[in-house]
Computed example of a mutant assay.
Amino acid sequence: MVPRNKRALIVEGGYEGHKPREIALIVAHMLSQQHFEVEIYNTLAIFSHRDKLAEADLIIPLWTMGELTPEQTLNLTETIAAGTGLAGLHATADAFRSVIEYQAMIGGQFLAHPGGQNVTYRVHLPHPNHPLVAGIGDFVVTTEQYYMMVDPSIAVLAHSCFTVPAPPLVWRPVIMPTAWNKQYGKGRIYYNSLGHSPDIVLMPQVSEMLRRGLVWASRR
Protein backbone atom coordinates (compact mmCIF):
# COMPACT_ATOMS: atom_id res chain seq x y z
CA MET A 1 0.00 0.00 0.00
CA VAL A 2 1.42 3.38 -1.03
CA PRO A 3 1.31 5.86 1.90
CA ARG A 4 -0.75 8.98 1.21
CA ASN A 5 0.79 12.41 1.12
CA LYS A 6 0.36 14.44 4.26
CA ARG A 7 -2.23 17.23 4.21
CA ALA A 8 -1.56 20.79 5.29
CA LEU A 9 -4.13 23.52 5.84
CA ILE A 10 -2.96 27.15 5.72
CA VAL A 11 -5.26 29.91 7.01
CA GLU A 12 -4.08 33.38 5.94
CA GLY A 13 -5.43 36.86 6.52
CA GLY A 14 -5.79 39.73 8.95
CA TYR A 15 -3.40 42.69 8.85
CA GLU A 16 -2.27 43.13 5.24
CA GLY A 17 1.05 44.66 6.33
CA HIS A 18 2.22 41.15 7.18
CA LYS A 19 1.67 40.08 3.55
CA PRO A 20 -0.30 36.97 4.57
CA ARG A 21 -1.10 35.81 1.03
CA GLU A 22 2.48 36.11 -0.20
CA ILE A 23 3.85 34.30 2.81
CA ALA A 24 1.15 31.62 2.58
CA LEU A 25 2.27 30.90 -0.99
CA ILE A 26 5.91 30.64 0.12
CA VAL A 27 4.95 28.21 2.88
CA ALA A 28 2.71 26.23 0.52
CA HIS A 29 5.56 25.85 -1.98
CA MET A 30 7.88 24.74 0.81
CA LEU A 31 5.37 22.12 1.91
CA SER A 32 4.68 20.89 -1.61
CA GLN A 33 8.41 20.22 -1.99
CA GLN A 34 8.06 17.99 1.08
CA HIS A 35 5.19 16.12 -0.66
CA PHE A 36 2.35 17.70 1.29
CA GLU A 37 -1.05 18.32 -0.26
CA VAL A 38 -1.77 21.95 0.64
CA GLU A 39 -5.02 23.89 0.89
CA ILE A 40 -5.08 27.66 1.56
CA TYR A 41 -8.06 29.45 3.11
CA ASN A 42 -8.47 33.20 3.63
CA THR A 43 -11.36 33.00 6.09
CA LEU A 44 -11.59 32.06 9.75
CA ALA A 45 -14.81 30.22 8.94
CA ILE A 46 -12.70 27.13 8.24
CA PHE A 47 -12.24 26.77 11.99
CA SER A 48 -15.98 26.07 12.26
CA HIS A 49 -15.51 22.86 10.25
CA ARG A 50 -14.18 20.41 12.79
CA ASP A 51 -14.09 17.46 10.38
CA LYS A 52 -12.03 19.46 7.88
CA LEU A 53 -9.52 20.40 10.59
CA ALA A 54 -9.25 16.79 11.72
CA GLU A 55 -8.36 15.66 8.18
CA ALA A 56 -5.22 17.82 8.24
CA ASP A 57 -1.85 16.56 9.40
CA LEU A 58 -0.66 20.14 9.86
CA ILE A 59 -2.43 23.47 10.38
CA ILE A 60 -0.60 26.77 9.76
CA PRO A 61 -2.44 29.91 10.97
CA LEU A 62 -0.89 32.91 9.19
CA TRP A 63 -3.34 35.42 10.65
CA THR A 64 -2.80 38.71 12.49
CA MET A 65 -5.24 39.75 15.22
CA GLY A 66 -8.83 38.71 14.49
CA GLU A 67 -11.19 36.77 16.73
CA LEU A 68 -12.25 33.17 17.10
CA THR A 69 -15.64 32.15 18.42
CA PRO A 70 -15.71 29.79 21.42
CA GLU A 71 -16.76 26.98 19.05
CA GLN A 72 -13.89 27.69 16.66
CA THR A 73 -11.41 27.83 19.54
CA LEU A 74 -12.60 24.47 20.84
CA ASN A 75 -12.48 22.93 17.37
CA LEU A 76 -8.90 24.07 16.83
CA THR A 77 -7.47 23.28 20.25
CA GLU A 78 -9.11 19.85 20.45
CA THR A 79 -7.96 18.99 16.93
CA ILE A 80 -4.36 19.79 17.84
CA ALA A 81 -4.60 17.98 21.17
CA ALA A 82 -5.82 14.91 19.27
CA GLY A 83 -2.67 14.78 17.13
CA THR A 84 -2.80 17.24 14.24
CA GLY A 85 0.31 19.43 14.24
CA LEU A 86 0.41 23.22 14.26
CA ALA A 87 3.22 25.41 12.96
CA GLY A 88 3.52 29.12 12.44
CA LEU A 89 5.70 32.15 12.16
CA HIS A 90 5.64 35.78 13.18
CA ALA A 91 1.96 36.85 13.22
CA THR A 92 0.82 33.38 14.30
CA ALA A 93 1.55 34.57 17.84
CA ASP A 94 -0.15 37.93 17.21
CA ALA A 95 -3.50 36.34 16.39
CA PHE A 96 -6.68 36.12 18.45
CA ARG A 97 -5.37 38.29 21.27
CA SER A 98 -8.42 37.71 23.46
CA VAL A 99 -8.29 33.90 23.18
CA ILE A 100 -6.12 32.68 26.03
CA GLU A 101 -6.60 29.03 25.02
CA TYR A 102 -5.00 29.75 21.65
CA GLN A 103 -2.08 31.59 23.24
CA ALA A 104 -1.49 28.69 25.65
CA MET A 105 -1.47 26.22 22.76
CA ILE A 106 1.01 28.27 20.69
CA GLY A 107 3.25 28.89 23.71
CA GLY A 108 3.54 32.66 23.46
CA GLN A 109 1.90 35.97 22.64
CA PHE A 110 3.31 39.06 20.96
CA LEU A 111 3.47 42.17 23.15
CA ALA A 112 5.53 44.82 21.35
CA HIS A 113 8.64 45.52 19.28
CA PRO A 114 10.68 47.82 21.53
CA GLY A 115 13.32 49.82 19.72
CA GLY A 116 11.22 50.21 16.59
CA GLN A 117 9.96 48.05 13.76
CA ASN A 118 13.24 47.65 11.90
CA VAL A 119 16.23 46.76 14.05
CA THR A 120 19.36 44.68 13.50
CA TYR A 121 19.96 41.83 15.93
CA ARG A 122 21.61 38.44 16.22
CA VAL A 123 19.60 35.22 16.34
CA HIS A 124 21.42 32.77 18.60
CA LEU A 125 20.89 29.00 18.51
CA PRO A 126 21.61 27.82 22.07
CA HIS A 127 21.49 24.11 21.13
CA PRO A 128 23.33 24.05 17.80
CA ASN A 129 23.18 20.26 17.45
CA HIS A 130 19.40 20.05 17.82
CA PRO A 131 17.95 18.44 14.66
CA LEU A 132 15.71 21.46 13.99
CA VAL A 133 18.67 23.86 13.80
CA ALA A 134 21.81 21.73 13.29
CA GLY A 135 24.20 23.21 10.74
CA ILE A 136 22.42 26.56 10.48
CA GLY A 137 24.46 28.62 12.92
CA ASP A 138 23.81 32.03 14.46
CA PHE A 139 22.83 34.77 12.04
CA VAL A 140 21.94 38.47 11.91
CA VAL A 141 18.64 39.92 10.72
CA THR A 142 17.24 43.41 10.24
CA THR A 143 13.52 43.24 10.89
CA GLU A 144 11.00 43.42 13.73
CA GLN A 145 12.19 41.95 17.01
CA TYR A 146 9.28 40.46 18.91
CA TYR A 147 9.00 41.03 22.65
CA MET A 148 6.67 38.34 23.95
CA MET A 149 4.97 36.66 26.85
CA VAL A 150 5.99 33.00 26.71
CA ASP A 151 5.03 29.69 28.29
CA PRO A 152 7.98 28.58 30.47
CA SER A 153 7.52 24.99 29.26
CA ILE A 154 8.52 25.73 25.64
CA ALA A 155 11.75 24.21 24.31
CA VAL A 156 13.72 27.18 22.98
CA LEU A 157 15.43 26.62 19.63
CA ALA A 158 16.60 30.20 19.05
CA HIS A 159 16.66 33.43 20.97
CA SER A 160 17.63 37.07 20.61
CA CYS A 161 18.60 39.70 23.15
CA PHE A 162 17.18 43.08 24.05
CA THR A 163 20.42 44.61 25.28
CA VAL A 164 19.30 48.23 25.66
CA PRO A 165 16.42 49.08 27.99
CA ALA A 166 13.36 50.53 26.22
CA PRO A 167 11.18 51.97 28.99
CA PRO A 168 8.61 51.46 30.20
CA LEU A 169 8.28 47.85 29.03
CA VAL A 170 11.91 46.71 28.81
CA TRP A 171 13.68 47.91 31.92
CA ARG A 172 16.74 45.65 31.83
CA PRO A 173 18.54 43.40 29.30
CA VAL A 174 16.38 40.44 28.30
CA ILE A 175 16.93 37.15 26.47
CA MET A 176 13.82 36.53 24.39
CA PRO A 177 12.85 33.25 22.67
CA THR A 178 12.71 33.60 18.90
CA ALA A 179 11.78 30.04 17.88
CA TRP A 180 10.56 27.07 19.88
CA ASN A 181 8.78 23.75 19.82
CA LYS A 182 6.46 22.11 22.31
CA GLN A 183 3.84 19.45 22.78
CA TYR A 184 0.11 20.11 23.10
CA GLY A 185 -1.65 16.89 24.00
CA LYS A 186 -0.78 14.53 21.15
CA GLY A 187 -0.07 17.44 18.80
CA ARG A 188 3.26 19.07 18.08
CA ILE A 189 3.74 22.85 17.97
CA TYR A 190 6.47 24.76 16.14
CA TYR A 191 6.73 28.56 16.18
CA ASN A 192 9.26 31.05 14.79
CA SER A 193 8.77 34.78 15.45
CA LEU A 194 10.74 35.73 12.34
CA GLY A 195 8.81 36.35 9.13
CA HIS A 196 7.52 39.91 9.18
CA SER A 197 7.98 40.11 5.42
CA PRO A 198 8.56 37.64 2.56
CA ASP A 199 12.25 38.55 2.23
CA ILE A 200 12.84 37.46 5.84
CA VAL A 201 10.99 34.18 5.31
CA LEU A 202 13.17 33.55 2.25
CA MET A 203 16.45 34.08 4.11
CA PRO A 204 18.28 30.73 3.86
CA GLN A 205 18.56 30.32 7.64
CA VAL A 206 14.92 31.22 8.30
CA SER A 207 13.49 29.13 5.47
CA GLU A 208 15.53 26.09 6.56
CA MET A 209 14.43 26.47 10.18
CA LEU A 210 10.84 26.78 9.02
CA ARG A 211 11.03 23.83 6.64
CA ARG A 212 12.29 21.57 9.40
CA GLY A 213 9.73 22.93 11.86
CA LEU A 214 6.82 22.33 9.48
CA VAL A 215 7.85 18.73 8.83
CA TRP A 216 8.55 18.07 12.51
CA ALA A 217 5.19 19.42 13.69
CA SER A 218 3.07 17.44 11.24
CA ARG A 219 1.09 14.46 12.49
CA ARG A 220 3.12 11.32 13.05
Results as ranks from 00 to 15, higher is better:
residue 1 M to G: 15
residue 2 V to I: 15
residue 3 P to F: 05
residue 4 R to W: 00
residue 4 R to G: 09
residue 12 E to N: 03
residue 13 G to A: 08
residue 13 G to Q: 08
residue 15 Y to G: 05
residue 16 E to S: 15
residue 18 H to D: 08
residue 21 R to W: 06
residue 22 E to I: 11
residue 24 A to T: 02
residue 28 A to H: 04
residue 33 Q to K: 15
residue 34 Q to Y: 02
residue 37 E to P: 00
residue 37 E to Y: 07
residue 40 I to R: 12
residue 47 F to A: 05
residue 48 S to F: 01
residue 49 H to M: 11
residue 52 K to G: 00
residue 53 L to S: 01
residue 54 A to I: 03
residue 55 E to F: 00
residue 55 E to G: 02
residue 56 A to C: 01
residue 57 D to Q: 01
residue 62 L to S: 00
residue 62 L to C: 00
residue 66 G to L: 10
residue 67 E to S: 13
residue 72 Q to V: 07
residue 73 T to D: 03
residue 73 T to S: 14
residue 77 T to H: 03
residue 79 T to G: 09
residue 82 A to M: 00
residue 87 A to Y: 06
residue 90 H to M: 11
residue 91 A to N: 11
residue 91 A to P: 00
residue 91 A to D: 06
residue 92 T to K: 01
residue 93 A to G: 10
residue 93 A to E: 06
residue 94 D to C: 08
residue 94 D to V: 01
residue 100 I to C: 01
residue 101 E to W: 00
residue 101 E to L: 02
residue 103 Q to W: 09
residue 103 Q to H: 13
residue 105 M to H: 00
residue 110 F to P: 05
residue 111 L to W: 08
residue 116 G to Y: 07
residue 118 N to A: 10
residue 119 V to R: 10
residue 121 Y to W: 13
residue 121 Y to R: 08
residue 123 V to D: 08
residue 126 P to Q: 08
residue 131 P to N: 12
residue 140 V to F: 12
residue 147 Y to D: 12
residue 149 M to A: 15
residue 149 M to T: 14
residue 153 S to H: 14
residue 155 A to V: 13
residue 156 V to D: 04
residue 158 A to F: 11
residue 161 C to F: 13
residue 162 F to I: 09
residue 162 F to G: 04
residue 165 P to Q: 06
residue 165 P to W: 09
residue 167 P to W: 13
residue 169 L to C: 06
residue 170 V to F: 10
residue 172 R to V: 07
residue 173 P to A: 09
residue 177 P to M: 12
residue 184 Y to I: 02
residue 189 I to A: 01
residue 197 S to F: 11
residue 200 I to F: 04
residue 200 I to C: 07
residue 201 V to S: 01
residue 204 P to G: 03
residue 209 M to G: 03
residue 210 L to S: 04
residue 214 L to D: 03
residue 215 V to D: 04
residue 216 W to L: 07
residue 218 S to Y: 01
residue 219 R to M: 05
